[in-house]
Simulated assay, not measured.
Amino acid sequence: MAEVKEDNQLYDDINVTPMLDLAYVLLVVFIILTTASVQGVKVNSPQTLAVKSLAKPQTRAITVTRDGGMYLDAYPVTLETLADGLARYKASNPALPVVVKGDADAQYEKIMAVLEVCKKLDITEVGLVTKRVGS
């Protein structure tokens, strides 16, 4: 006689592999979204009519706030630590691109000090961040 096998068998355990796959995907998405949201220090950029995109890989951002505070990629720095940090980046990438984000109400002297540091380190790719008029 032939044995009959039922397709509707009860299982003693639950297959959690699909749930773990979903959990790992959600974890990766969460990590990417939270690290992408940290972009730097907010400043009120001056406005201009001519705007050109300066986005390049490995671009370093120097931010000067209204009260004169300076940041290198969202980390607070002084002129000395700014020069040290840029020198390290310049050693690994000789064509280091830098953008300066100055608040519209920042002291002009602070912006010039940052540009002097870039000049001393022979950083030639320097851009100034502005807002397009009407944005």
Rank of each mutant, 00 (worst) to 15 (best):
D7H: 11
Q9I: 12
D12R: 10
I14R: 11
N15K: 10
P18V: 03
D21V: 09
V25C: 01
L26G: 03
L26H: 01
L27P: 02
L27F: 12
L27T: 03
V28N: 00
F30K: 00
F30T: 09
I31R: 00
I32S: 02
I32G: 05
T34Q: 06
T34V: 12
A36I: 00
A36M: 11
Q39G: 11
V41Q: 10
P46A: 14
A50L: 12
L54N: 13
A55L: 12
A55Y: 08
K56M: 09
P57V: 10
T59D: 02
R60W: 05
R60Q: 11
R60M: 04
R60V: 14
T63I: 03
R66P: 01
D67E: 15
D67N: 15
G68L: 05
G69M: 06
Y71K: 04
Y75Q: 13
T78Q: 05
L79Y: 06
T81H: 06
T81Y: 05
L82C: 05
D84E: 13
A87M: 08
R88D: 13
A91L: 07
S92C: 02
N93M: 11
A95K: 14
A95C: 02
P97M: 06
V98A: 11
V98W: 07
K101G: 00
A104Y: 08
D105P: 00
D105G: 04
